[in-house]
Design a protein around this nucleic acid. Structure first.
Lengths: 164, 164
DNA sequence: CGTTAAGTTGTTACACTATAACATGTCAAC
DNA sequence: GTTGACATGTTATAGTGTAACAACTTAACG
């Protein structure tokens, strides 16, 4: 069952993260993949953050827990989690965010607020459908899509200093 | 009048670039902006290329024509042209490509072929419409969108070595 | 003219993002 | 208990993008 709240609506975020982590474990063990300590912590770090985090921000937090202070440590975990569909890369921000709908088939669309830098994952099957249709008109076969949009979230929209 | 060919269809590309350059001049002088030598050459470089080019690739070509070998030289011209809607940034590739529809109101959607690395700009008003609709359901105000998709162009789709 | 103001370019230096390559370790299966 | 696959540690470097300030061009104004 899909959830109709988003990162822009108040909700029990702890429940989200617990659920997401449980789902991650289930999915990985089902496919014979391992959720090692770095990977688990990396996922948890992203789940705990409201913002998308850069690889080096993730690395900082990993270092604080005793992992080596080397970029590959973070990038390997991030790449793995992205391949598994457990996190997403936000290209506009060079950053990563935990996937809140892992397991559900979903074509991620990201709403990035330029006021508070929150990132929400929006359900948008129609967007992907329209995209695939547009592509096939040019006989192009779609494999992976990046759909991101920059703008203002409800909260920031009402605050004048962000509106500019 | 829109053009129904794309980067994936053979066409008179010289005519495209001439037209695009003329349009650029017209648009800029209309809005009081200046198409200085670096800017003009940068646009021409992108128009001449079938692929999207990285900032440093553009810089190389600029250097070959006597401009200074400093990143800001390229980035400034690229940023300016992007602000004017004359070129687009392809985030997935960290690269830039000339806009073939400058002047027409358009919501750019990019089809990136992983076989030959060609990039086509597809007309896709419906995609943007769907995206805006999905966003407003979360009360999010869209300002700028990035829509890119990776896959295979018609030519590469038929070549086995690319299909993998 | 001469001055000023806005925009553009030159230049230095640096920050941030990401990967290659190879050594070492771990763990499960045979 | 050895092998092979996967995962991690580690060093080094490649690639992408900006900050900051100085110098120059241009057009508008008096």
């Amino acid at each position: 069952m899909p959830h109709d709240h988003s990162a822009f609506s108040p909700h029990d975020h702890d429940a989200c993260t617990t659920r997401a982590m449980a789902l991650a474990e289930a999915r990985l063990s089902a496919s014979g993949q391992r959720l090692t300590p770095v990977r688990r912590r990396t996922l948890q770090i992203l789940l705990d953050s409201t913002r998308a985090l850069g690889a080096y921000e993730v690395l900082e937090r990993l270092v604080a827990e005793g992992f080596a202070n080397q970029p590959p440590v973070a990038y390997r975990a991030l790449d793995f989690l992205e391949d598994q569909g457990l996190i997403h890369r936000i290209r506009r921000l060079n950053a990563f965010t935990a996937c809140m709908h892992a397991g559900e088939a979903h074509a991620p669309v990201f709403l990035i607020c330029r006021g508070c830098h929150a990132v929400a994952e929006a359900p948008a099957v129609e967007v992907t459908a329209a995209l695939t249709a547009a592509a096939s008109r040019l006989h192009f076969t779609v494999e992976r899509s990046t759909i991101e949009t920059l703008g203002l979230c409800p909260a920031c929209h009402d605050r004048p200093q962000a509106a500019a």
